[in-house]
């Protein structure tokens, strides 16, 4: 990797964030709100991509990490009256604990067994949210009160229900996750993850503890997804069991496949595209699941590398 490409890579990523910030001032109200939501979900997709795209581990249970953040932040705020910052931190901590435990267990398996085990753990998590319906109100969920989603620094108040505040916070979280992913991918650890994806046995015989590296990837991925979940709870004020269901384990897979696995910006493109595809389709039909299903099949049949994966293959090999 040359110095020139390093400058190009950072230039591109900074430009993307700058465009997102600028959009705050020009987007019409509806798309402004949609994009804020897409950015938070794109963070979820980026967390998924780190594990699936780079380390090559296909999980079918990432909803539990997103939901760990969602409930980890939402429950103490709702029931214990915690502040926003404490709630966000507790959401990420919940993601850390859940992903560490799941990683330690699930990484004893590989391939298809890994997919099924992660799916089962996620199902357990989902059922647990239903079982404790007294506190979570299950599928119906909790609406976080507006006054709780406000934070006061000295004289200025930060109100998360305000559209501009919400959008800019979503962009900040997105930028943080994007540069964190970029840093991981370009680090020694990132190179080892890609090597594990390509040939785990060979990587082990180069002296790497592949289990420890994979565990680190699961935890990093889990914490990023939990951060997305916690932000979702705080910014949009809703915490419900739907986000822990199987569907939310499949969606990040779809977003990442579409945008391009193992590309830093692919998750954003995939999430954005799918969100609008479903949005537009729902103008004509309520059959959004049909759109998701057909997209998944078309992707594996004809477009394995996704948008940015194809761009990288044909035109821009330097894309991280």
């Amino acid at each position: 990797m040359t110095e020139g490409s390093t400058a190009r890579i950072y230039g591109l990523h900074i430009a993307v964030v700058a465009v997102l910030v600028a959009l705050n001032f020009v987007l019409p109200e509806y798309h402004h709100a949609v994009l804020a939501r897409v950015l938070v979900l794109a963070v979820f997709a980026m967390g998924y991509n780190l594990l699936f795209g780079y380390a090559g581990l296909l999980s079918l249970g990432h909803a539990m990490f997103f939901a760990a953040g969602l409930y980890g932040a939402g429950l103490p705020l709702y029931h214990l009256g915690w502040g926003i910052a404490a709630a966000f931190a507790s959401g990420m901590a919940a993601g850390f604990v859940v992903s560490a435990v799941v990683g330690l267990l699930a990484l004893r398996t590989t391939g298809v067994a890994f997919m099924i085990v992660t799916m089962m753990f996620a199902q357990v998590f989902y059922l647990v949210t239903l079982y404790f319906g007294e506190w979570t109100r299950g599928d119906e969920g909790l609406v976080l009160p507006q006054q709780a989603r406000r934070i006061v620094f000295g004289g200025t108040a930060l109100d998360l229900t305000d559209p501009t505040t919400r959008y800019l916070l979503a962009v900040s979280l997105f930028a943080a996750a994007l540069f964190a992913t970029l840093a991981v991918v370009r680090s020694r650890h990132g190179r080892v993850l890609v090597a594990i994806r390509e040939n785990e046995e060979r990587t082990r015989m180069l002296g790497y503890d592949t289990f420890a590296n994979k565990l680190a990837a699961v935890v990093t991925s889990g914490v990023i997804c939990a951060a997305a979940g916690a932000a979702y709870a705080l910014l949009f004020g809703y915490v419900g069991a739907t986000f822990a269901s199987v569907q939310y384990s499949i969606l990040p897979l779809l977003w990442v496949l579409l945008g391009g696995a193992a590309t830093t910006l692919g998750p954003l493109i995939g999430t954005l595209f799918m969100y609008y595809a479903v949005d537009i389709a729902s103008g004509y039909t309520s059959a959004y699941m049909l759109v998701v299903g057909v997209m998944l099949i078309l992707l594996v049949l004809f477009f394995r590398r996704g948008v940015l994966g194809t761009v990288r293959e044909r035109w821009a090999r330097w894309l991280p």
């Binding site: 190179r191 080892v192 090597a195 390509e198 040939n199 046995e201 060979r202 180069l206 002296g207």
Partner: peptide, 18 residues
Amino acid sequence: SVFANLPVYDNVALPVQR
């Protein structure tokens, strides 16, 4: 069993960086 999809450079960088 080299890493066929990775550049030659990265193949050697893996043992070097360790």
